[in-house]
């Protein structure tokens, strides 16, 4: 009941964008101590697959106290060899247990030919890749009825064989699959800087009405490259992208995604508060596209 109250409260009062945190074990105690400051949590589904009873209990406890959105890592939606049915089934079980408003995975491939790459690998932006994604996403949507949203990744390499820009590829994909988008503003900024494109143009070219959720965290500098290490405090340049997106679309939620180099929890809360303030300040009667992917 608490969960339902929380959701309906945010639907009734503006701004309705919820701000939350990617759940990580070291945060557990602080998250419960600061429940009133965290609107929702994103759980990494993979942490609960084939899990020990303690992890399942943890998931139950989180579900009792927070609205949850599952985020998976290895659906490998860009794999030309297709979806791993066993993995999909496990994800489906988690999603069915959590009963979220939406769930998400990435625009990438993570395995091929029996090799697990271990991270999110980019695909060339071609018509063939597009068909692969459409086919795989259709399988996911057939198995899991909750709305599915897709996240842009960072890439450290580009494919000269790409036939279109990433933004065009994503637009076509969202259109063909009728999925929402999880826009990672840090990933967008990093790619734009590393490969010399304008992130504002990227925003111009994607269907912002499909953006449902954001990810944000600080970037990491390595020599002359930027990296998404999920280990740094959100910097001003990322807040700039965050603010611009908030201005231009109507979000359901934003998640701080910190995985490493954990700071004192009050710094996490400060970042959540900063995000909340940006959204509050930006929300002043501006007409924005409304998230079609979730509002039907």
């Amino acid at each position: 009941m608490k969960e339902n109250n929380r959701i309906s409260k945010t639907e009734d009062q503006r701004p309705k964008t919820r701000i939350g945190l990617g759940f990580r074990e070291p945060f557990r105690a602080d998250i419960f101590l600061n429940q009133d400051k965290i609107d929702f949590l994103e759980i990494t589904t993979d942490h609960y697959l084939d899990a020990k009873p303690e992890k399942i209990e943890e998931l139950k406890l989180l579900k009792e106290h927070f609205p949850l959105v599952p985020h998976s890592l290895e659906l490998s939606l860009g794999s030309a060899e297709g979806i791993d049915e066993d993995y999909l089934e496990k994800i489906a079980e988690i999603v069915e247990f959590v009963k979220p408003e939406w769930f998400s995975d990435h625009l990438c491939f993570t395995r091929s030919g029996g090799v697990k790459i271990g991270h999110l690998a980019p695909v060339p932006y071609t018509d063939e890749s597009l068909k692969v994604f459409v086919r795989n996403i259709s399988k996911v949507k057939k198995r899991i009825s909750a709305p599915f949203i897709l996240e842009n990744i960072t890439y450290l390499m580009q494919f000269p064989s790409s036939q279109m820009r990433e933004s065009v590829f994503i637009s076509k994909l969202l259109d063909e699959t009728d999925c929402g988008m999880l826009l990672d503003v840090t990933n967008l900024y990093i790619n734009a800087r590393n490969f010399g494109f304008d992130w504002r143009r990227f925003l111009d070219e994607i269907p912002l009405e499909r953006v449902v959720q954001l990810h944000f965290v600080g970037l990491h500098k390595h020599k002359n490259l930027l990296i998404d290490a999920h280990a740094d405090k959100t910097q001003n340049e990322i807040w700039d992208v965050f603010g611009e997106v908030v201005k231009r679309c109507d979000l359901k939620g934003a998640i701080l995604e910190r995985d490493e180099n954990f700071p004192p929890f009050n710094e996490i809360l400060e970042e959540i508060e900063t995000a909340r303030n940006i959204i509050s300040n930006e929300f002043e009667g501006t007409a924005k596209p409304v998230g079609a992917a979730l509002h039907g």
């Binding site: 794999s79 030309a80 491939f109 395995r111 091929s112 030919g113 090799v115 790459i117 695909v123 692969v132």
Partner: peptide, 16 residues
């Protein structure tokens, strides 16, 4: 099916 074979090679190149 070229993407599948390309991905098979890429996955190996990334990890080996």
């Amino acid at each position: 099916m070229s993407l599948k074979e390309q991905q098979n090679l890429l996955a190996r190149l990334y990890t080996d």
